[in-house]
């Protein structure tokens, strides 16, 4: 899952960035509103974590422009502005959720998971498909009743594929979702993770659609 963090405070930014990456999210960080606007134009993100008081262009303006061009990316506002009118304005302008600084990081994570879940059209926190169940909170993966240990990247790839069975994701798309800008991506990284997943979960769970990408089928043949 790839997140965009918009935060002008350096200390908060670097901590959130590290913490979210530690949770297996691919996170990009921009420090002003204008840049956020440009980046949102260029890339597709799974979630936007938005501060309001930003240099150059206010967070609410970023949000307005985003919604004006019918971008439906989930937006979580994280700000020190706590007045009721500001919270209402934030949600009414198209944000999906609002969290006030200082916040507990666990709460931020829970809200991010809830938004991602809703965006994927699910309500249940644990999802299961073809005998494989994953729990985003505990990061527990079970295949046919057996607990399986995955690396952070393997987990990220599995989560992406399992979120929408039947949908084919190209290698590039998978790379985009699991790596942020500054990370070096080795050319065969995705293949390595797919290989690892097949070894741990069974060879026929993830199918290779030649020339297009990978998918987990809706049902086994």
């Amino acid at each position: 899952m790839r997140l965009l963090l918009v935060e002008d405070d350096v200390m908060i930014g670097e901590s959130v960035l590290d913490l979210l990456r530690g949770e297996g999210y691919a996170v990009d960080w921009v420090k002003d509103g204008e840049l956020a606007d440009q980046v949102l134009h260029a890339h597709g993100y799974d979630l936007l974590l938005l501060d309001l008081g930003l240099p150059k262009c206010d967070g609410l303006t970023v949000l307005e422009r985003l919604r004006a061009r019918k971008d439906r990316v989930p937006v979580l506002i994280a700000t020190a502005r706590d007045a009721l009118s500001q919270r209402v304005a934030g949600l009414d302008k198209g944000a999906d959720d609002y969290i006030i600084k200082p916040y507990e990081f666990d709460e931020l994570l829970a809200r991010i998971r809830a938004l991602l879940r809703r965006a994927a059209g699910r309500a249940e926190p644990v999802y299961e498909h073809l005998g494989v169940s994953i729990d985003p909170v505990t990061r527990e993966v079970r295949a046919n009743g057996q607990s399986v240990t995955l690396s952070a990247r393997e987990w990220a790839v599995l989560e992406l594929l399992l979120a929408r069975p039947g949908l084919v994701l190209s290698r590039k798309q998978l790379e985009d979702k699991i790596y942020s800008w500054r990370e070096d991506v080795s050319s065969n990284a995705v293949e390595v993770y797919i290989h690892g997943l097949r070894k741990k979960l069974g060879a026929d769970l993830i199918q290779n659609v030649r020339g297009v990408g990978y998918m987990i089928p809706k049902a086994l043949p």
Partner: peptide, 30 residues
């Protein structure tokens, strides 16, 4: 005052989640 407090809170979280000495050292410095 909220902004530095928010930073402190996150920095404490980072320290708590630091898996190795290097990241712990970074977290403490921050």
């Amino acid at each position: 005052l909220r902004t530095p407090l928010a930073a402190l809170k996150l920095q404490v979280q980072s320290l708590r989640r630091a898996a190795d000495d290097v990241s712990r050292e970074v977290a403490i410095t921050r």
